[in-house]
């Protein structure tokens, strides 16, 4: 019997593929997709060739601008975004790490001045292989996994 994922095709919207397993729900929360009325289909821990699994999100009537696509790289640096119109893929692109993230993350350094002043946090992508981010203010670098996202 042919093994095929039974996920409903979408007419108009975006499909985010190649999301590392465990990151799909975080992406939904970060982009506040949990609060939208649009139809969303999410696949978690789907099979992959390397056995590590992946997540996948399909969302109707929603398209990512460049800034959002860059922010997606925080969770899924190898994700692809397919833009769907009339059930056809009209554009497909891979997310890219921007050089910095502004107003997205909380500095893990509890003594960083950014915690108690009226400024946007800003982090520079410091080491692209393992995704380290360096704080614009306290100048300390941290692995991506140590960061929380701003609400």
């Amino acid at each position: 019997m042919q093994k095929k994922l039974q996920v409903e095709a979408i007419e108009h919207g975006s499909v985010i593929d190649h999301i590392p397993a465990q990151q799909g729900v975080k992406i939904l929360k970060f982009f506040k997709f949990t609060q939208t009325k649009e139809k969303i289909t999410i696949g978690l821990n789907l099979a992959t060739h390397n056995g590590e699994g992946k997540d996948l999100i399909k969302i109707e009537n929603t398209f990512f601008n460049d800034q959002q696509a860059n922010q997606l790289a925080l969770f899924a640096p190898n994700a692809t975004i397919n833009q769907i119109k009339d059930f056809k893929v009209v554009n497909k692109f891979q997310v890219q790490l921007p050089s910095s993230f502004i107003g997205v993350l909380v500095c893990p350094n509890s003594n960083c001045i950014s915690h108690n002043e009226p400024v946007n946090t800003r982090f520079y992508v410091h080491q692209k292989n393992s995704l380290k981010l360096k704080c614009h203010y306290c100048e300390k670098s941290f692995e991506r996994s140590t960061f929380d996202e701003l609400d």
């Binding site: 350094n109 003594n111 960083c112 001045i113 950014s114 002043e117 400024v119 704080c135 614009h136 203010y137 306290c138 100048e139 300390k140």
Partner: peptide
């Protein structure tokens, strides 16, 4: 001088 890291950078802004 300030006890928190990043204070001078912030001040300059």
């Amino acid at each position: 001088r300030h006890p928190q890291e990043g204070a001078a950078r912030l001040a300059s802004e």
